[in-house]
Write a protein that binds this DNA or RNA. Structure first.
Lengths: 343, 343
DNA sequence: CTGTTAGCGCGTTCAA
DNA sequence: TTGAACGCGCTAACAG
């Protein structure tokens, strides 16, 4: 792309500075990067010219030359979800402390887009983070093989193929289930998350096991989703099922249901108990405050950065998987089971 | 940076493909970009080699050569704030439809970091979005001059210097104030936002004007902040002030206060009315649902993208400023003023 | 239709 | 201590 005619307004580059200062480009480069030993007088001259010409080095050219972009990509299934926003926040700020920037993309829950998106982003970055990928099994493994260094959040490390940051869903679900059982609930419901959400599947599986181990307990599954309105809309079905407690896929859904119960005049927890998962910011302040299990997603994002850094440094496989264990936050949305069940 | 020794594992590049396919790099480039007319047989051969060698073009090299990164930077003061997350979501997804990616940075409310951050990011992107910059006045103008194309959100276009997307705070505040006045409130409070937040200042100024125009009304200002806990903590002071209605800087703060009122056993709106600003997702579901003014931040992000695109296309100054007018959402957190004020 | 070549802006080796 | 020259990977103008 040789430039024939003068462009509208070309950015001043290293050559402009070199010429104006009467030195070579190498010297300008040295001054900019504070390298080598440059004559103080030249340094001053170059600095002055840089100032005057408002010179700032091209990040693109530096990246090409150095082979490093100081950029990391992150793909999330839904940027609108507070949980992913927190992960992004943790990752972004942790990476920033080491001089790295984050380039984000929203796969919008699309299975097909995930792989091409990851490949594209990986070409402009030094590493990639896949948060709760919807891709699974061999396809996920294949993708991860193509884009190292990579890290997955919310998924196992795929047999040590890549580092991973995960949540111990089993522990979280057990804590919530124990809590409900101790309150006397025997017939409980689970509001399922989105179709391709691995975390919803994990949570449900653990719950099924839990109930299977205890003959006095029953579990009712409800198709739901991940939004507040999904929780809101679930009420009629939940009511007709006669469960005395509901475990929602996540806090957002649980809060949606609480809103509906308030509108319907159903007392919580006297009429029904509701518990969530995540302990998002708003759960502590809802009316009544929501019982849930707490996961620090910001810290997860920070941990992801640390592990990714090790990976970029060239850590050998198999790679570590950091588990986060959720802590029960018993609040007022859960209480003793009614003597007379709703049915 | 001439490469002397063989690196650990070099990425296959366009030359590798060209050699393996027995063609020139130019031909490979044409095949990759679907340009010109290439012999179908060669196309097939090149494609096959690309597949075999798992070749993917370097984004960095393309950017340098083309002079375009297809990346836009966005700086926000606080990634943890749901409002900025929504803006990011709108911008990211709108830009993605046109093949652009977003690189995000969190200035963490730091006045000093904003300018250097913006300059740095602008070197790796084609344009920049400053969301609610904390920088102001001549300093902001100077920064904007240095990093075109740029767009500001939540700030005026600085006399047409750059395009802007703004919220009509005056209209929103007036709507809320009218609403409270019609309910009979004459002594109202305002919970202030963060120190350098222009939006908080605008809102407060409008409120001061509003009250000044109506001799029967009184306004009490409270130092507060932008988090739920700030709202939560404000209660003792608010209570002692004897106001019958509180207008919070934003919904997050208002929800924090509602949570506290619930804990304290203060009836809302019978004991006190609370209103917010933004209409975030959770406000419709709080108990009681929060009266507020609605602003579609996702749409604002999308609009920002459209205006920025025009700017990148070389639109002439002065640049447009798109106003968003908030709509009143009267819900159950506001009601008639108590006959006997709290004092 | 294809190959040769210059150039994007910068970092860095090597010789002076 | 400084500068000339090469290379990073790719695109585009030009010649054949």
């Amino acid at each position: 792309m040789p430039r024939r005619s003068a462009p509208r307004s070309r950015r001043t580059n290293i050559s402009d500075v070199a010429t104006a200062a009467g030195v070579s480009r190498a010297t300008v480069s040295r001054v900019v990067n504070g390298l080598g030993t440059v004559d103080p007088e030249l340094v001053a001259r170059v600095r002055a010219v840089m100032e005057e010409l408002e010179y700032t080095p091209s990040g693109t050219a530096r990246s090409l030359s150095l082979g490093v972009t100081h950029t990391v990509a992150m793909i999330v299934p839904d940027l609108g979800n507070p949980m992913f926003q927190k992960l992004l926040q943790g990752l972004t700020n942790a990476a920033a402390r080491d001089g790295y920037r984050i380039i984000v993309a929203d796969s919008q829950e699309s299975l097909e887009e995930e792989a091409p998106l990851a490949r594209e982003l990986r070409r402009r970055s030094d590493a990639i983070v896949l948060a709760a990928p919807r891709l699974d099994g061999p396809e996920l493994v294949e993708l991860l093989r193509q884009v190292p260094p990579a890290l997955v959040i919310n998924r196992s490390s795929q047999d040590g193929l890549v580092p991973a940051v995960t949540i111990d869903y089993a522990a979280g679900i057990s804590a919530l289930a124990d809590h409900l059982r101790e309150l006397g609930h025997t017939r409980i419901g689970y509001l399922q998350g989105p179709e391709h959400s691995a975390s919803s599947v994990y949570r449900q599986e653990r719950l099924v096991e839990y109930v299977a181990d205890r003959s006095e307990m029953e579990l009712v599954l409800f198709e739901c989703g991940s939004s507040m309105s999904d929780g809101y809309d679930s009420w009629p079905t939940v009511r007709d099922s006669g469960v005395t407690a509901v475990l929602a896929f996540n806090d957002v859904v649980a809060l949606g249901l609480l809103g509906r119960l308030s509108e319907e005049g159903v007392a919580v927890p006297e009429g029904i108990s509701v518990v969530g998962f995540d302990d998002i910011q708003f759960s502590r302040f809802s009316a009544p405050p929501l019982t849930t299990v707490a996961v620090d997603h910001v810290e997860m994002g920070e941990t992801a950065w640390r592990q990714l850094q090790a990976e970029m440094g060239g850590a050998a496989a198999p790679h570590a998987e950091t588990h986060f264990t959720p802590r029960l936050q018993a609040r007022r949305s859960s209480g003793p089971a009614p003597i007379t069940p709703g049915r």
